[in-house]
Design a protein around this nucleic acid. Structure first.
Lengths: 358, 358
DNA sequence: CTGTTAGCGCCTTCAG
DNA sequence: CTGAAGGCGCTAACAG
C-alpha cells in the first residue's frame, strides 16, 4: 500500500451518503496508541491517573482516528442514565410551545444533555404511545406538556417527570406553570376598571389552564361586586382561531353583546380579532399570552403575559436536578407570575363597542 | 414472602421522582414466563416461529412486568443503527423553523423514529459541536439547517445527511429547499408589474437563501429592461427585525426613497412594516415567506410563500430512505416552488408611497 | 500508573 | 420450536 506523506486529515473514500463507514472505537484507539482499553477510557473521561506522555499518545490517536465516544454504549453501562431528556408537547407550530422547546433545549444543552422531541398532535392515546417510546429510549427525564387523560402509567416508569404549563392526573410530579388564575383576574380586573360590566370570556375546551383563568375571571367579578352573566362564558368546541372567530361573531351579533372580550389563549385572541375586524366592531379585548405582532395590529393588543421561556428553562433545570439525584425534595410546584401589557385594545371604554366609525 | 392475590398492575412503592426503579429486562420476562431469552426476543419482534401457547405466556409476562424493549441496547447491536434522527437548526422560535421541526417530527414518528433536537443559536463552532454531539449519540441520520461555515467534518461521519433550506459547503449531500431565485423573481416581477421602478431589497447577512433571492430580483429587473440601483440593495448587518426596521427608516428618509420594498425574510418583513408604520409611509411591500397574522395587519401583507411543512416532510422522508439503505441514488436536490399571495401591501401603486393620508 | 475482565440489554447465530 | 452463547462499545473493579 502506498503511503501518502500527509495523512493529517484522512478522508475516507466512501460516499458520505452510504454510511458503511464504521466509526472507530476505543479499542481502535487503544491499538493505535499501543495502550490498553482502560487507559483510553480514562483519558477520554478527564484523564486522571494517566501519565502525561501516555495521555498525549492517546490523544494523538484519538485525533488521527477522529474518534468520538459512543454515547449509546455509554448509556448502557450499569446503573447510569443516558444523557438525554425528552420533551413531549402538542404543537411546535404554536409559538408558545416553540418557546418552551427552545428554552429547555438551551438549558439541557448547557449540561451536555440532548433533547428528544415527542410530537403529540393527536389523541391522548398518541401521547401515551409517544411517552413510552421515549421511555424505552432510556431518557434521563421527561418534560411533558400534558394533554388531558390519565398519566398514572408513568408511575414506576423509573424516570423523573416534570409537567409543564399544566398538571396531570394520576401521578404526583414536579410542575412548572404560570399563575393562570392570577392572570385571569388581572385581565378581568383591568377591563372592569375601564368600566366594562359585560365582559365575555372565551375558553378552549377542557384545558386545565383556561379553567383556572376562568376562575380568575369569576374572582375579579366577585371582587367588583358584579354577577357573571353565564351567557358570556363561552366554552368553545375547539381551541383554534376559527372556533373563536365563529363564537365572537355570534357573540357580537346578539341583541346584548358584551362590551369587552377576554380571550384566554393566544390562538383564541387571533380569532377574536379576525371576527371583530370583519364585523367592524371594537369592543375592548385582552388576550392571554403575548404573541408576535400583537403590537402591530390595527389596534395593538393588550395581553396578560408571562415569561414563557422561563417556563421551559425552569422545567429543564428542575428535571436535570432530579435526574442527577441532586434534588430529592418532594414534588415542587413552580408558579410564574403574569403581567399586564397595555397596548390599546384593552383600554377601550365600554362606549367604544359601537359600530366602528369609518 | 406474602403473596398478594392480584398483582395485575404492580405499582412500585418507590416515589416516582426517585428513579431507583429498575426497569425489567428480557431476562426478567424470560424467567417469569419460564422460557429462554431468545424466545422472548422472538416474541417481542413479531413472534414468528414461536408456538402460540409459549408466545402467549411470554406476552402475559411482558404485560405483568410492564416490560418495554430497551431501545438503547437495541441500537448497540452489531451493525444496526439507532432509531432516531437528529434535527439541527437555529431558532425554534422562528415559525419557519418550528414548522420544519414539526413536519419532520411527524414523518419520523410514523416510521417509529424519534427526533433529537440540536439547538444552534450561536457561532458556527457551536453548530459543529452540536452536530458531533448528535453523531456521538449514534443517530441514524442528520437533518441540518446549516449555518455558514464548512461542513466538511461531516464527511466520513458515517451518517447520512440531508440539508434543509440551504446547502452547505465541504460536503455533497441531499438538499431540500425552496426555489429562492424563482421566488425572488416572482416578488420583484409583481412589483415591477405594478409600475414600480425603484424597488429596494433587504437582505439578511450572508445567508445562502437571500443571495438567491437577490439573484431573482436582479433577473426580474433585467427581464424588464431596468437597471438595478445598487443603493437600493441593502445588506443588513443582522437578520432580525430591528435591523430591518432601522434600515427601512434610513431608506425611506433618503431624498430618493424607493416606491417598493422587497423583504427577503419573514423577520425582515416585520421590521419593514414596523418602520413604515412609525413613519406613516406606504410604499408597496412584498415579503418572502408567509407568516401568521400577515393578513390581519393594517395593510395585509403580500408575500411569496412556499410549503414549509413539506420542506420538513421531504427532508425526513429522504433521510429515512437513506438511513434504511433503500435510497442509494447520488445526492438529490429537491426544490419546492414558491407562490405569490396577494393581500394588498404588494399591490400599491408607486404613487401610494407618498406620505400616508391621515 | 496501566492492562485485563466482567457485564450493561439485546439480537443473532448455532445447537438441541 | 426452543435454549445457550457471543458480541456490540464502554466503564468500573480488579489485578499487576
Amino acid at each position: 500500500m502506498p503511503c501518502r506523506e500527509k495523512e493529517v486529515n484522512p478522508v475516507p473514500e466512501t460516499f458520505p451518503n452510504t454510511p458503511e463507514t464504521a466509526r472507530p472505537t476505543m479499542i481502535d484507539v487503544a491499538r493505535r496508541a499501543g495502550v490498553g482499553l482502560g487507559t483510553v477510557s480514562r483519558v477520554v473521561n478527564g484523564g486522571h491517573g494517566v501519565r502525561d506522555e501516555t495521555a498525549q499518545r492517546v490523544r494523538t490517536a484519538i485525533e488521527q482516528l477522529g474518534f468520538q465516544r459512543n454515547e449509546v454504549a455509554r448509556a448502557l453501562r450499569p446503573g447510569k442514565k443516558s444523557s438525554s431528556l425528552a420533551l413531549v408537547l402538542g404543537d411546535l407550530t404554536n409559538p408558545f410551545f416553540a418557546t418552551i422547546a427552545k428554552a429547555s433545549l438551551e438549558v439541557a444543552g448547557q449540561s451536555g444533555f440532548a433533547v428528544v422531541l415527542g410530537s403529540v398532535d393527536e389523541d391522548p392515546e398518541g401521547e401515551k404511545r409517544a411517552i413510552q417510546e421515549l421511555v424505552s429510549r432510556q431518557v434521563a427525564g421527561l418534560m411533558i406538556v400534558p394533554d388531558q387523560g390519565d398519566h398514572a402509567f408513568l408511575v414506576g416508569a423509573g424516570v423523573p417527570v416534570v409537567f409543564v404549563d399544566r398538571p396531570a392526573t394520576g401521578i404526583e410530579a414536579d410542575i412548572v406553570m404560570v399563575d393562570n388564575e392570577g392572570g385571569g383576574k388581572l385581565a378581568t380586573d383591568h377591563l372592569l376598571e375601564q368600566g366594562h360590566e359585560r365582559i365575555a370570556i372565551l375558553l378552549a375546551p377542557s384545558y386545565y389552564t383556561t379553567g383556572r383563568r376562568l376562575r380568575g375571571y369569576r374572582r375579579a367579578h366577585r371582587g367588583a361586586g358584579l354577577e357573571v352573566d353565564e351567557s358570556l362564558v363561552v366554552q368553545l368546541p375547539e381551541g383554534n382561531a376559527e372556533s373563536a372567530e365563529k363564537a365572537t361573531r355570534e357573540l357580537m351579533l346578539r341583541p346584548d353583546p358584551p362590551t369587552a372580550i377576554f380571550a384566554s389563549t393566544n390562538f383564541l385572541t387571533e380569532g377574536v380579532l379576525r371576527a371583530l375586524g370583519e364585523l367592524g366592531l371594537e369592543p375592548a379585548v385582552v388576550g392571554f399570552d403575548d404573541f408576535r405582532l400583537a403590537d402591530m395590529l390595527p389596534t395593538p393588543v393588550t395581553v396578560v403575559a408571562s415569561d414563557i421561556a422561563e417556563l421551559g428553562r425552569s422545567a429543564a433545570r428542575l428535571l436535570l436536578d432530579r435526574a442527577s439525584g441532586a434534588d430529592r425534595r418532594p414534588p415542587q410546584r413552580i408558579v410564574l407570575p403574569c403581567a399586564l401589557i397595555q397596548r390599546g385594545s384593552g383600554e377601550r371604554p365600554p362606549s367604544a363597542s359601537k359600530r366602528k366609525p369609518r
